[in-house]
Simulated scan of single mutants.
Amino acid sequence: MNYMPGTASLIQDIDKKHLVLLRDGRTLIGFLRSIDQFANLVLHQTVERIHVGAKYGDIPRGIFVVRGENVVLLGEIDLEKESDTPLQQVSIEEILEEQRLEQQAKLESEKLKVQALKERGLAVPRADTLDEY
């Protein structure tokens, strides 16, 4: 096989099932239908997978266009090993509630951390003032 530089090497992955991790932390799973030189992706039969602890839920998203700059990781899913997971699949409603509770607990933890630092005379810059990149 000839070496192809950059995203051209992904042409052989067209029509295969892939997991895509986005910059905002979301995880997408779908069939790669198209890719260009900027790593822009078109995914088909896409689901957004939400993980919380040992549980996960899939939200159907259909056709999904992802701008290349938002892709952190792209990997092919081995269809034979896909069902061999220690994670438990739950309903969309249940995983969204689990995610909400996890985010709430994280927020409470952050508040306690900021309070403890403040008591020691230290300040933490607010997240919205930091550069996201």
Rank of each mutant, 00 (worst) to 15 (best):
N40G: 05
F38D: 03
E97K: 10
Y56T: 09
H51M: 13
L41E: 07
M1R: 08
V65A: 09
G53H: 06
T129Y: 12
R100Q: 14
D36I: 06
Q88N: 03
L74T: 04
L87C: 04
K118S: 15
L19V: 09
N40L: 03
L122C: 12
M4P: 00
A123M: 13
P5H: 00
A54H: 11
G62N: 07
V90D: 03
Q45G: 04
E108W: 05
L41N: 06
D13L: 04
N2A: 01
Y133P: 00
Q89L: 07
T129Q: 11
V66Q: 09
I95Q: 02
S91V: 01
L28P: 07
R49I: 12
G68A: 13
G30N: 07
V47S: 08
T85F: 05
K113Q: 12
S83Y: 09
Q104H: 14
E80P: 00
A123N: 12
Q104P: 04
L130S: 13
V114T: 14
S9I: 01
A39Q: 07
I29S: 03
L10R: 02
T7S: 02
V42C: 08
K81I: 01
L32R: 10
E94I: 02
P5T: 00
L96Q: 14
Q45D: 11
I59W: 05
Q37K: 10
V65L: 06
T129D: 12
T7R: 04
E80A: 08
L32V: 10
I92M: 11
R100E: 13
P60Y: 09
Q104V: 14
R120M: 12
L87K: 04
K118D: 15
P86G: 03
E93I: 01
D24V: 13
L22P: 04
Q115C: 08
G25S: 10
G53F: 02
D58V: 06
A123F: 13
V52E: 10
E80V: 02
I92Q: 10
Q45H: 05
Y3N: 00
N40K: 09
E93T: 00
D13M: 01
M4W: 01
T85M: 00
E76Y: 01
D78A: 05
V52G: 05
E69R: 03
L122G: 07
Q103C: 06
Q12T: 05
L41K: 03
G62H: 05
